[in-house]
């Protein structure tokens, strides 16, 4: 199929995705931490065809992150313990944001903090910074779920009260749509989902990685320097799907589903479970064209089944 045939084909199915204040041209995004700052995959996959990209988590101050080894491959999975390495808010604003503003796609900035003040500062500063660069930030994804840092991160996302508090504070400091990114490392994810909804989140993204580990039997030591890391990849898909299904029934705000999506069939499953959009993460590492393969497969599926818009799929499995 030629490119023009492909685009005509896409036009037959409406892909526009409205997420409670965030409108995207299609429902396929890339996940934070897997897509750098948008330029790394540019030679292989055109960002102009993506619904949005979510950049690496930003903290107020620059972070070196964890020592290596930061990665361990597991069956159908990948453990990572990068530890939020990032250039910090000031450098991001000065040197990364202008480049992101030039990209032909919606940019979502992921923010992460160690205290409530961190989240407030990040939200306020990025709100201003976005305005400076033609409102280039379309939403903030609030990471209350990083498993690889000592304090903050996941600690905020495992307790409903703290989760609500963080989101409410971010709400006060920004006019941008807020995506609350949830950790699966909790007993009942619907409690956290309800909490961030009442805190003022526009959207929920789920799931972040599952805490895991790997041990080298020759050295008899943990493989990761950080001992524990976050598991991603096809191995976690059933868990992520179940959580999307549960959260869909618990809240009234839209969901971005992620966790092991590597094919269009996976994406369709997530939408049927209740995700209004999907994010591709680890699959990018294997197939840089995974987001586009997902998008094209989704269009074909809709067309074959006679759906006029991809949003018609959302929640059909309930």
């Amino acid at each position: 199929m030629t490119k023009s045939e492909q685009s005509t084909k896409q036009n037959k199915v409406c892909l526009e995705t409205k997420l409670n204040g965030l409108t995207l041209r299609n429902p396929v995004l890339t996940a934070s931490g897997t897509y750098g700052f948008g330029e790394e995959y540019a030679p292989y996959c055109s960002v102009a065809q993506l619904g949005a990209i979510t950049v690496k988590g930003i903290t107020p101050l620059p972070r070196l992150g964890n020592p290596v080894p930061r990665l361990a491959e597991t069956p159908a999975g990948l453990l990572n313990a990068v530890g939020l390495e990032n250039p910090g808010l000031e450098d991001f604003r000065k040197n990364y944001l202008p480049k992101l503003a030039a990209l032909d796609t919606a940019v979502i900035v992921n923010i992460s903090g160690f205290s409530l003040e961190d989240y407030a500062l990040l939200a306020g500063t990025l709100d201003e910074a976005s305005a400076e660069y033609g409102n280039c930030i379309k939403a903030l994804e609030v990471n209350i779920s990083c498993p690889n840092i000592q304090d903050g991160g996941m600690a905020f996302g495992t307790d409903p009260q703290s989760a609500e508090q963080v989101i409410a504070l971010v709400r006060k400091n920004t006019k941008l749509p807020i995506i609350a990114k949830l950790t699966p490392n909790v007993t009942d994810i619907t409690e956290i989902a309800k909490a961030v909804e009442s805190g003022g989140a526009n959207i929920i993204s789920l799931i972040n990685t599952l805490l895991g580990m790997s041990i080298d039997i020759s050295t008899q030591r943990p493989v990761l320097a950080n001992k524990f890391g976050g598991l991603s990849g096809p191995a976690i898909k059933p868990v992520a799907l179940r959580m999307v299904y549960q959260v869909f029934e618990a809240v009234n705000i839209p969901l971005i589903g992620m966790g092991g999506i590597s094919t269009w069939q996976d994406a369709v499953e997530f939408m049927l479970a209740g995700a209004s959009a999907v994010s591709i993460g680890t699959a990018n590492f294997v197939n840089p064209l995974a987001p586009l393969d997902v998008l094209h497969g989704l269009v074909d599926y809709c067309e074959q089944r006679g759906y006029k818009a991809s949003r018609e799929l959302v929640g059909l499995a309930h």
Binding site: G36, Y41, K56, V68, P69, L71, F285
Partner: peptide, 17 residues
């Protein structure tokens, strides 16, 4: 040499200091 995932600079898995 370092353990790598993406190979293109996106994942920050293979850093050195």
């Amino acid at each position: 040499e370092e353990r790598m995932a993406c190979g293109v600079g996106a994942c920050l898995g293979c850093v050195c200091t």
